[in-house]
Computed example of a mutant assay.
Amino acid sequence: MFEKLQQAFWKALTPDLVAETLVAEPKADGMLAPAVLSALGGAANLKTQQRVALTRTRVQLQDPALVDEAALKTAGITAVMVLAGGVVHLITGL
């Protein structure tokens, strides 16, 4: 029980450093709106998705070339940060 409490504590303090649980097939009704999901290349293109902060969601993609940044901006995403390894940060706030 102490290990679970300790892991939850460190996950709360450092969400990027603690391993995330992999989502086999993300659902459209999860964190991402259907328009955002289609702009990322569809549900089949997502490896993982994780809420990093109130205004940021990190997704890892199978093929980052399928990302349509114009469609993401139309869907309400303020900014898109494309990182190495197919990781994309979606910024939704100011």
Rank of each mutant, 00 (worst) to 15 (best):
E3D: 10
K4I: 02
L5T: 05
Q6T: 08
Q6C: 03
Q7R: 15
A8H: 11
F9I: 02
W10G: 11
W10A: 13
W10C: 12
W10Y: 15
K11F: 09
T14Y: 15
T14C: 12
T14P: 01
P15W: 06
D16A: 00
L17M: 13
L17G: 05
V18Q: 05
V18T: 14
V18G: 07
A19K: 15
E20Y: 11
T21F: 09
T21W: 09
V23T: 12
K27V: 04
G30E: 14
M31Y: 00
A35S: 07
A35C: 00
A35G: 01
L37A: 08
A39N: 06
L40C: 03
G41S: 06
G41I: 09
G41E: 09
G42T: 13
A43T: 09
A43L: 05
A44W: 02
A44F: 02
A44R: 14
N45D: 05
L46W: 07
L46H: 09
L46R: 11
K47Q: 14
K47C: 05
T48S: 13
T48A: 13
T48Y: 07
Q49W: 07
Q49G: 11
Q49T: 04
Q50M: 03
R51P: 03
R51T: 09
V52I: 13
V52F: 03
V52R: 01
V52Y: 01
A53H: 05
L54D: 13
T55M: 11
T55N: 14
R56H: 00
R56W: 00
T57V: 07
T57Y: 01
Q60P: 00
L61A: 03
L61E: 06
Q62P: 00
Q62M: 01
D63Q: 12
D63W: 03
P64Y: 00
L66T: 07
L66H: 06
V67N: 05
A71D: 10
L72M: 07
K73M: 10
T74Q: 15
T74N: 13
G76N: 01
I77S: 04
I77R: 08
T78F: 08
T78G: 06
A79Y: 07
V80C: 08
V80A: 10
M81H: 07
M81L: 14
V82A: 12
V82W: 00
L83K: 10
A84G: 03
G85V: 14
V87M: 09
V87P: 04
L90I: 08
L90K: 08
I91R: 04
T92W: 02
G93N: 14
G93Y: 07
L94N: 09
